[in-house]
């Protein structure tokens, strides 16, 4: 097989203690890819960051900090296309307000901006009983 094909589907409680677990999965996927021509260490950090930010966002803004809820994450790599989906069960938020960098001294609001700088495409759409943050990137 000439390209990597990886699918990961994971559900974790809506708690920040699991950010490390999810981030490490992203990091390890980057390090395990059979075919990647770029800076692997950089990609590992980026996937760690994207997953950490997306999950933290779901916990704090979409699932409203309710520890009884869960966050559902899908990571797929097919034909060098990476897609990450993070499902939440909340009311959602307006993703557009965070797409641009804020003031350097703002204490909040950098997470979605960082996701935008790393991934090629980012959308946040209604999904059954909540929303899904979908992010994709070409891995060349």
């Amino acid at each position: 097989m000439n390209t990597d094909r990886i699918e990961v589907d994971i559900k974790v409680p809506n708690q920040t203690r699991y950010l490390c677990l999810i981030g490490h999965i992203g990091e390890n996927i980057a390090l395990a890819l059979k075919h990647y021509g770029g800076d692997r260490e950089k990609l590992a950090y980026e996937l760690n960051l994207v997953l950490t930010e997306a999950m933290a966002n779901a916990i704090q803004h979409a699932n409203e900090g309710d520890p009884a809820r869960e966050v559902h994450i899908e990571i797929g790599i097919i034909e060098r296309n990476l897609t990450i989906r993070v499902y939440d069960h909340g009311q959602g938020f307006d993703i557009r307000q965070f797409a641009e960098p804020g003031h350097p001294l703002d204490e909040h609001g950098r997470g979605i901006y960082l996701i935008h700088t790393i991934m090629d495409q980012v959308s946040y759409l209604p999904s059954s009983g909540g929303h899904v943050l979908e992010m994709s990137k070409k891995l060349d």
């Binding site: 950010l19 950490t52 933290a56 001294l105 909040h108 997470g111 960082l114």
Partner: peptide, 16 residues
Amino acid sequence: RFVDSSGLGALVSGFK
């Protein structure tokens, strides 16, 4: 080894 946006936010808060 790893800092996310909320880690940066905490440092910005301390800086201010």
